[in-house]
Write a protein that binds this DNA or RNA. Sequence first.
DNA 1: TTGTAAGCGTTATCAA
DNA 2: TTGATAACGCTTACAA
Lengths: 341, 341
Amino acid sequence: MTFRPPAPTLSDVAKSAGVSTATVSRCLNSPERVIESTRNRVMAAVRNLGYTPNFAARVMAARRSLTIGAIVPTLENAIFARGLQAFQEELLAQGYTLLVASSSYRADTEEEQIRTLVSRGADGLLLIGHDRDPAILKFLQTQNVPALVAWTYDDNASLPSVGFNNRKSMRALVETVITLGHRRFGVVSGRTETNDRARQRVEGVFDAICASELNANTIEVIETDYGIENGADAFAQLMSLKTPPTVVICGNDVLAVGAMKKARELSLGVPEDVSITGFDDLELASVVVPALTTIHVPHREMGTKAARALIEMVEKKVAHVSVELEPSIRIRGTLAPPPTA
Amino acid sequence: MTFRPPAPTLSDVAKSAGVSTATVSRCLNSPERVIESTRNRVMAAVRNLGYTPNFAARVMAARRSLTIGAIVPTLENAIFARGLQAFQEELLAQGYTLLVASSSYRADTEEEQIRTLVSRGADGLLLIGHDRDPAILKFLQTQNVPALVAWTYDDNASLPSVGFNNRKSMRALVETVITLGHRRFGVVSGRTETNDRARQRVEGVFDAICASELNANTIEVIETDYGIENGADAFAQLMSLKTPPTVVICGNDVLAVGAMKKARELSLGVPEDVSITGFDDLELASVVVPALTTIHVPHREMGTKAARALIEMVEKKVAHVSVELEPSIRIRGTLAPPPTA
DNA sequence: TTGTAAGCGTTATCAA
DNA sequence: TTGATAACGCTTACAA
């Protein structure tokens, strides 16, 4: 092992350029405040030495990091990918860096991640959904770190949100399903206990059914984690009931695609034997055969608007007002009238 | 706007517990070095005040961050998701935190991200592939930050790697394809100029074909960015040739699924009219109909081993020896003998 | 336009 | 077992 010199610091640059550290700092942060001749000299020294500013030191001295943290429940499937990408692009355009963490849909992990990101100096936080221990909100308050919620819209929650009404959207879809003549419904949902979006979507299903003259008691709901195989298993369970549903409403596209896979294995035709619907309109939804009927969520718009809102909260230090986006129904091949209708 | 007190610091805790900052620091970092009675008092103060350590200050003082950075070409599709997940799990188990950045397959962006992560105090870096300006390697050296390459294996590159031989794997697959009787090949590849894995995979195709007595001149190769729609377009282009291929070898599963989608639109049967193969064995590959023939990459194993190797490099400050993993071929529904064979 | 110097919140060395 | 105190590398009044 060879000896390695320590990385160059501001004062190395200052020495090499024959100026003070303050001048070097100015060259880097507000070049217009340094006369050109010195600036050139300094920048040359920076290049020569291969100097890179130490972020930790900068954060400590400046007391802001130009960093935004986002904690999403999962990065394993595409559920949050597109929105997050747009979020990140907008942040970047405004000079901020994004730090992403995943909570695996666990409240305790999310709290840990919140603490981690705050301790790393995040200037603001993007969180998903409103289900959360109030204590952690108090923590954010004492730490003076603004937070914004996305992927759901709720005007009178304790945090501002940029998102859509999951319940209303699902209700609209199920109303369409009812109009087609379906009377026996199966529901494959995400975990409702720890996931307000999943909960609201199931509520939307019941809203639609109760609003019609149908009997809500006949609806079978299976809860499971998001995952193609989980969707497949839940679907199999539903279809093995004495009176299987004619339509299976899935809490998201991942579950729905799992259901489709299992239908194939069971030699059940979709939509001839059973209809299937999803939620989110991931790329997956247009790849499967037939294409999946689902609810299109304006992911990119949500990401972009969330970024703008959060930056405003960070810079102006004011609470942002919530923004509601409008999903739209995408009727595709997996939905048709029930077999006997 | 209400007044917000600044977040509590170490010395706030020290004052509140009636000890020195050194003792508080010890309670947090090596509790066994503090007698129980004081420790209890200190921890109570920590809880009371809602104290969270300031990461930037800690990094500066300790001169290590227990943070590993990873820069992948994309987070938009699942190509790197599973491996990265395993990488992160192993890091976590060993007390490290993962910071992920995406380069969008651009060399300049990757350099920027490398600098960013180093400046943020990453103790080590995971990079994908070996294609990279030597200057940035020198930078890593002067900054004293070890780096490891994954998703490819190359024993005599300048950085150690944990991965597989893309060329050899693709060659094996194409040899199988040849054995089935195929003679007209189409290739849909990722960008070979900026992506050594894509390049090696194409080379593997030619290796197999040259090793047989076939004429390599008849192979049409189309390069495109990774994406379902790109795969679809490239496939359409290949199938509109005067003598279209009987098999389309795709550089990865995402492209292959795009090809399958387009085949359906063109009413081409897979595999009756044309065979299609992928690479990676993403979850996607088992969801499509028919299931995709592809090369299974041990993503999780790669992630775990990369984490262990990188941590060793960080802690022992020695270069790790490269590790080669073995992908395996997964023959599934999209591959069959050519129509006329 | 540039320099001086006081922090920023930790850790770590050295004494007590 | 604990406490002083000097770093760590940078930004930013304030002064020159």
